[in-house]
């Protein structure tokens, strides 16, 4: 921005525009600005425009959202599922990151690679794998029945539990890496110091290790939560009738009903909801931590 402002008073410049350093710097960021515009500014503003003009200015699509309970209810369900799956991914991912931080380099690299590879397995494959594991005749129920622990199969699938399992599996890598990288930046001597000063392992964790890893938790949780908001494959495949996601309704509006203005309005509302979460995050943890900066 500074560079852009500097080139404005051309007439007062000594020498031609081309030879001003600020201008040269500006030229260097042009490709990035262009990409930013094409990939973010243009699509998002065209969605916003589509939701507000058809072709005259109208708020009817937003009003329709407000007066049709379905959409806010599904948005609420979407938020619930997103929060729960984020928490669940945290509960599973945090100990993994914690152990990896303390593992020997060979072990650590093996598991980091394994986690990275899991990114490459198709979402559908991972979801169907869970179906095979969790269904009534699936691995878990078969083993439990065989062992005589249960008489009739547990309902592990096509309900919230199934969604949580599937989404947690997908989100854990996304949550492990930010936490792990923040933990790598924490001096392990701090834990020694705490113990030396009289803290038990438990106290050391809660008073030192955990608070210091909060930026990683925040970054990972925000990332996963925002991804979860836009998710619908896993809830569709592993969920029951009540696990409906707003992005599925948006898709129906786009693809089946060609109601693009309303779909745009729904998208804008989802975007706004996401921004609210982002703002809350920023208020308490600071956005710069997302990119690895330290809040001072």
């Amino acid at each position: 921005m500074e560079a852009a402002e500097n080139i404005m008073p051309v007439e007062s410049a000594s020498g031609s525009l081309w030879h001003r350093p600020a201008f040269k710097q500006f030229i260097l960021v042009v490709p990035a600005l262009l990409a930013l515009f094409l990939l973010f500014v243009y699509p998002i503003s065209s969605i916003l425009i589509k939701s507000l003009f058809s072709p005259e200015f109208t708020l009817k699509h937003y009003l329709y959202f407000l007066k049709t309970p379905l959409y806010s209810r599904v948005l609420w369900i979407t938020f619930q599922i997103s929060v729960l799956s984020t928490l669940s991914a945290l509960v599973v991912g945090y100990p993994i990151a914690y152990v990896l931080r303390r593992a020997r380099p060979g072990v650590r690299n093996f598991f980091l690679l394994a986690i990275t590879l899991s990114f490459m397995i198709s979402l559908l494959v991972r979801n169907y794998s869970w179906i095979i594991v969790l269904q009534r005749s699936g691995v878990v129920n078969s083993v439990l029945t065989y062992l005589g622990l249960i008489d009739s199969p547990f309902k592990l699938l096509h309900n919230k539990l199934g969604v949580m399992v599937g989404m947690t599996h997908i989100f854990v890598p996304y949550i492990v890496f930010p936490i792990y990288s923040v933990m790598m930046g924490i001096d392990l001597n701090l834990e020694k110091a705490a113990q030396n000063l009289g803290a038990s392992r438990w106290q050391t964790f809660w008073r030192i290790s955990f608070p210091l890893s909060l930026p990683g938790i925040g970054a990972g949780a925000l990332l996963v939560f925002i991804m979860a908001l836009g998710f619908f494959i896993t809830p569709a495949l592993l969920g029951g009738r009540k696990e409906q996601m707003i992005s599925n309704l948006i898709q129906i509006q786009v693809v089946d009903l060609l109601n693009w203005p309303f779909a745009s309005a729904l998208s804008v509302i989802l975007l706004l909801a996401t921004l609210v979460v982002f703002a809350i995050y920023n208020r308490y943890l600071g956005v710069e931590r997302l990119w690895g900066g330290v809040k001072t």
């Binding site: 243009y42 699509p43 065209s46 969605i47 589509k50 198709s122 979402l123 559908l124 925002i226 991804m227 908001l229 836009g230 998710f231 619908f232 494959i233 992005s247 948006i250 898709q251 786009v254 693809v255 693009w260 779909a263 745009s264 729904l266 998208s267 989802l270 975007l271 996401t274």
Partner: peptide, 23 residues
């Protein structure tokens, strides 16, 4: 890709399926 997956990949969140259309 399955069709549904295609839609997911091109427009996961925030109704980005619209982006596909606008592009």
């Amino acid at each position: 890709m399955t069709r549904r997956e295609f839609i997911v990949k091109t427009g996961t969140a925030t109704g980005a399926a619209l982006v596909t259309a606008s592009v």
